[in-house]
């Protein structure tokens, strides 16, 4: 187990290095010039050149990337171009809010998705199954900002059940978390449904029924642990898509997390923040996958970590 974690840790370092490189290249070749954003429209060419030299942006790519990595090795994500503070501090101050939203969002996503999937599989071919699958199709294909705005309009503006935006109380958390849950539930419900249908056909389900077990026990005790295995593997992969949703949802609901931070930074070409948030998101994805791989053998004894 220790060995396994060590090898996974080394792999993760390589993955993060690769991601930092690709992101850095993309930002380097981007036509938008961060210096122009800092200096403003009226700045003279001399001022612009000064700023560029100060930030080290006149150096060749390899030097810039080398410096960034050197900082990274010491836990230094650099300094924001526009906010005049350390990126590490900015991210750390916003991380708790984002983690809270992520946890609530993933919880909502799983409860909705798995619940719908199980119900659809058990009621397969009936009206309810078709309705559920239609719903999942809508949530999968609807744009994230449309769903966010719709939720905001219905539950905050019209019904006034929840605050329109902001952060602080549990009531503030409900709408953004539910929105993330609805957005992500479609994939999970479809996957859960087909996995569950396969498992319900298995010989050991027939054995369980032949023992005289009741329907709910057959489904929850015998079918669910087997059916959930492919879904767990997907949670790790899904974190990436989920992070994209976080950026949109945090912006719409005014949630002061790293998604909102990233959104602002992208608009202003604040490269150190974009790099920092990207790397933090990559860490989340790597950790999510590791977690999924660690949970799977707890459910299925046939899976061995190696």
């Amino acid at each position: 187990m220790g060995r396994y974690l060590l090898s996974r840790f080394l792999q993760s370092i390589l993955i993060l290095l690769g991601i930092s490189f690709v992101t850095f290249v993309l930002l380097y070749v981007l036509p938008a010039d961060p210096v122009r954003q800092i200096a403003g429209r009226s700045a003279t060419a001399e001022t612009v050149e000064n700023i560029r030299r100060q930030l080290g942006l006149d150096q060749p790519f390899i030097v810039q990337y080398g410096r960034y990595l050197a900082g990274l090795a010491q836990g230094d994500l650099g300094r924001s171009y526009l906010q005049k503070s350390e990126v590490t501090e900015l991210i750390l101050s916003r991380l708790p809010a984002s983690l809270q939203l992520m946890a609530a969002g993933i919880f909502a996503e799983l409860v909705l998705g798995l619940g719908m999937g199980i119900a659809a599989a058990v009621l397969r071919g009936r009206m309810a199954d078709q309705l559920l699958m239609m719903t999942s199709f809508v949530t999968v294909s609807a744009p994230q900002f449309v769903v966010s705005l719709l939720m905001l309009y219905i539950f905050a503006v019209r019904l006034g059940w929840f605050p329109i935006g902001g952060y602080g109380t549990a009531a503030h958390l409900v709408l953004p978390a539910l929105t993330l849950g609805i957005l992500g539930s479609g994939w999970y419900s479809r996957m859960m449904r087909s996995s569950m249908i396969d498992v319900l056909r298995a010989d050991y389900i027939r054995t369980a029924r032949a023992k005289g077990l009741g329907r709910s026990r057959v489904i929850l005790r015998h079918a669910l642990p087997n059916a959930i295995l492919p879904v767990i593997a997907m949670i790790g992969i899904d974190i990436g898509i989920f992070m994209g949703g976080i950026v949109v949802v945090e912006s719409v609901f005014g949630w002061p997390g790293i998604g909102q931070l990233a959104w602002q930074a992208i608009q202003r070409v604040d490269i150190p923040i974009i790099m920092g948030v990207t790397l933090i998101s990559a860490c989340a994805i790597v950790l999510g996958n590791l977690l999924a791989d660690l949970i799977a053998p707890m459910i299925d004894p046939r899976i061995r970590l190696k």
């Binding site: 010989d203 027939r206 054995t207 023992k211 642990p225």
Partner: peptide, 23 residues
């Protein structure tokens, strides 16, 4: 359900797949 497994029991052809793999 009360009869199944108690008064009439059954064994199947495929022992490899007839037991729940995660229990």
């Amino acid at each position: 359900r009360a009869v199944r497994g108690d008064r009439i029991a059954m064994i199947f052809q495929e022992p490899m797949t007839s037991l729940n793999p995660v229990m």
